[in-house]
Amino acid sequence: MASFELSAFQPTRDLSIVAAIESPASGIIQLGFWLNDPMQQIIWADKVAGHPRRDFLWEHTCYELFIGIRDQDQYIEVNLSPSGAWQSYHFEEYRYPETMPPPLNSKIELVELKRTGFGLTATIDINLFLHHHKIAMKDLFVGISAVIQTTAKTHYFAMQHSSPEADFHNKRDWLHQF
Rank of each mutant, 00 (worst) to 15 (best):
E5L: 06
L6Q: 04
L6F: 07
L6A: 05
S7M: 09
S7P: 01
S7F: 02
A8V: 06
A8H: 03
A8M: 05
A8F: 08
F9L: 12
F9N: 09
F9V: 04
F9R: 13
Q10C: 10
Q10I: 08
Q10A: 04
Q10E: 09
P11L: 07
P11Y: 06
P11D: 14
T12K: 09
T12L: 02
T12N: 04
R13E: 07
R13V: 09
R13I: 07
R13Q: 08
D14I: 05
D14R: 14
L15G: 08
L15M: 04
S16T: 09
S16V: 06
I17N: 01
V18S: 07
V18I: 15
V18L: 05
V18G: 01
A19T: 11
A19R: 00
A19C: 13
I21P: 01
I21L: 11
E22K: 14
S23N: 08
S23V: 03
S23F: 05
P24L: 12
P24V: 14
A25L: 15
A25Y: 10
A25D: 10
S26K: 07
S26P: 08
G27M: 06
G27E: 03
I28V: 13
I29Q: 03
I29W: 02
I29T: 02
I29E: 00
Q30A: 13
Q30G: 07
L31P: 00
L31E: 10
L31H: 02
G32M: 05
G32L: 07
F33A: 00
F33D: 00
F33W: 10
F33C: 01
F33M: 03
F33E: 00
W34S: 07
W34P: 00
W34K: 15
L35R: 02
L35T: 14
L35P: 01
L35G: 00
N36M: 08
D37A: 02
D37V: 03
P38N: 03
P38Q: 04
P38R: 12
M39T: 13
M39C: 07
M39E: 13
M39K: 10
Q40V: 09
Q40Y: 05
Q40K: 15
Q40A: 10
I42A: 10
I42E: 03
W44E: 12
A45N: 09
A45L: 15
A45H: 06
A45T: 03
